[in-house]
Amino acid sequence: MDAIILQILNGLDKGSAYALIALGLTLIFGTLGVVNFAHGALFMLGAFCAVTLSRIISLSYIVLDDTKKDFLGNPTKIEVPYIYDWLGADTGAAIIDWSVPLSILFAIPVMILIGVIMERGLIKHFYKRPHADQILVTFGLAIVLQEVIKYYFGANPIPTPAPEAFSGSFDFGVLVGFDPNSIIYPYWRLVYFAFSMVLIAGVFAFLQFTTFGMVVRAGMADRETVGLLGINIDKRFTVMFGIAAAVAGLAGVMYTPINPPNYHMGMDFLVLSFVVVVVGGMGSLPGAVAAGFLLGVLESLASMGWVIDLIPGINQVIIYLVAIVILLTRPRGLLGRKGVMEE
């Protein structure tokens, strides 16, 4: 039982990432009708916002230490962050330590800007083109973006740790009456799960309770009628593209302490997120979130030893198996609108 609870917890934080990426994907599909294969790259760009801010905060000058020699026998170069001089060593070190959460503030405007430039500069020219063209151009864009990141940051993963206060793990099992060490859970994964819930709730509240959101929802339901009412729905959809980019980016920022970011991380999530969108229902926001968590949990449960012993290889195919079953039995997805993907 404790093993199952543990895998459900693991699945929830995995599902958090799937849900956040899929939420943005389905938002773009629902508003603009575009299948955005560059969405994984936006997740990756968000992660590199955290890397960039961490490097900016840690900008240093060199002090030569004559008492120590480097590998060539020259005096050792010691890097001293400027922030230590400006704010004192303790405050400076604390800010560097908290660079990942601080990156949220940095990533929001950067990702919205990237999203808007992407939509206005490239994707808007493909609205009336077939989905195949949209997939090709956005996939190409994703490759360009990841090569740009690789050029500047290299191919190697870059460690971007969580603040020291969240670096450990806690014994969740003891809290709920199990034996010690039966359910150990890292603090940061709990933070990630809570953060994703807040972000998802924020997006839903924005769409549900603001006039802007109401117009966007109306546009999603009937774009032509909203346009005939004299509302510039295109401008609002562009903003929504920016918001979707920011959601993916924030998912990436907060993911960096879980796995060190590399230029390829977006591609690792892209296919899974598309499966999540299809299972949840193309264009359905609640569907994307529900399917994200569902598939995350199923993937974790399928990785349990006795499950693999029972059905070898199930851990590698479970998500795709679910997608096949859904597409065969309910093509519109779990919470998809009637008619979508059913023609």
Binding site: A3, L6, G11, S303, G305, N315
Partner: peptide, 20 residues
Amino acid sequence: TVLTPLTQTDFSSYIAPVLN
């Protein structure tokens, strides 16, 4: 001994059962 897929990025579901 547990085999992990080469494409795996998050190993939490393989790591979590180890301690117990």
